[in-house]
Design a protein around this nucleic acid. Sequence first.
DNA 1: TAGATTGTTAATCGATTAACAATC
DNA 2: TAGATTGTTAATCGATTAACAATC
Lengths: 215, 215
Amino acid sequence: MSSLPNNIPEKTIERLSEYRRTLLSCHEQGITHIFSHVLAGIHGITAVQVRRDLMLIGFSSDTKKGYDVEVLIDFIGSILDSRNPVNIAVIGMGHLGQAITKYFNGKGLKLKIIAAFDIDPEKVGKTVDDVPCYHMDHFEELVEDLDINIVVLCSPTNVASELVVPIINAGIKGVLNFTSKPLNFPRGIVVENYDITTLLEKVAYFVKENEENNL
Amino acid sequence: MSSLPNNIPEKTIERLSEYRRTLLSCHEQGITHIFSHVLAGIHGITAVQVRRDLMLIGFSSDTKKGYDVEVLIDFIGSILDSRNPVNIAVIGMGHLGQAITKYFNGKGLKLKIIAAFDIDPEKVGKTVDDVPCYHMDHFEELVEDLDINIVVLCSPTNVASELVVPIINAGIKGVLNFTSKPLNFPRGIVVENYDITTLLEKVAYFVKENEENNL
DNA sequence: TAGATTGTTAATCGATTAACAATC
DNA sequence: TAGATTGTTAATCGATTAACAATC
């Protein structure tokens, strides 16, 4: 039983990840300390929210010079990161799959995309930024052999449903689903569905609402 | 002043978009009616939530045979869609930009990607699925000429900040930002930031939490 | 009718913000 | 010190769920 706080809200987890990216960028620029209101401003939120998030994970600084950037990066890491690297596979090596693979490569975090899967002979056997692309036929055995925990689903939407059973059977524990088919997995498997159409329709709706309110 | 409900919760808007995609797919399969619990099941939520969302937008059906798929599609459209088509531009025509452009093309919704922008001479002047790619130098004038309202930001993260001023000056009203730099715009411009790293880190965190709770 | 379904209010849960004491 | 900042509790706001009357 750890002494770490146990039920961190989902929104706080998201923001912690975002704070860390900002802090890493500050660190690169040689910034050593940052005030809560500065960090908040960058993220378009309030300083109270930043401080409360940090309170929730048990972080506190003993100075009034703002948070020590390096220390906070490590502390957030102690909450978010697993002890060991987490291996990720991309399913579907079209443009989206390639974009995500390249984007991640060399980011140096605990999360690593180590394999891709496709059924297109044009793609199988090639590599994208050193990530090899295998045929889906070998998915289950390779997940086992390569110790893959999480998949990013970038396949065409119309084959997404067929992938549910292999993903379950392979013992995958988390799915980031970019197809527009919402997928249900048994309890114990984490799923996040992000349909790009929905994201855009949401922006468009609030643009429309803004316009209506200003007339 | 319209008689439509005015303050629909953000989460309801997201779900309406998701419901509609499912309903469109049902419609293609020839399904004419759907119960709230069936729609809920597909989305991994409760039937009460579906019914409450529909209540909030003022939809009601007069039968106990479930919702009429076609009627509900149109009703959701009357809430989400603008009267006129909304023109969208993609900034940054790398893999992600191309993925999104191809994904959207021919979906037949009110949202249309009609232009792309980049600075790479390899990309400028070409088309992706009939969407022409222009040089960023002409961004402001083309936004005006082509009546573009919304941009999808797929540029490299390190140039994202430089794009804020041109986007504001061009009169863009909504931004869907896929770079990992959170962007702040003045009130009146809608922004949604989706950093893929954060999405993955969130999945990884909850996978880790699941594992810890099961030991 | 009895069972299934819907629409809606009230209660609960979760997330944000306000208020403020403590510290440098 | 006075002003700025932090950490934390209490209050508010928003979203989900429970409960249930009404309808087919």
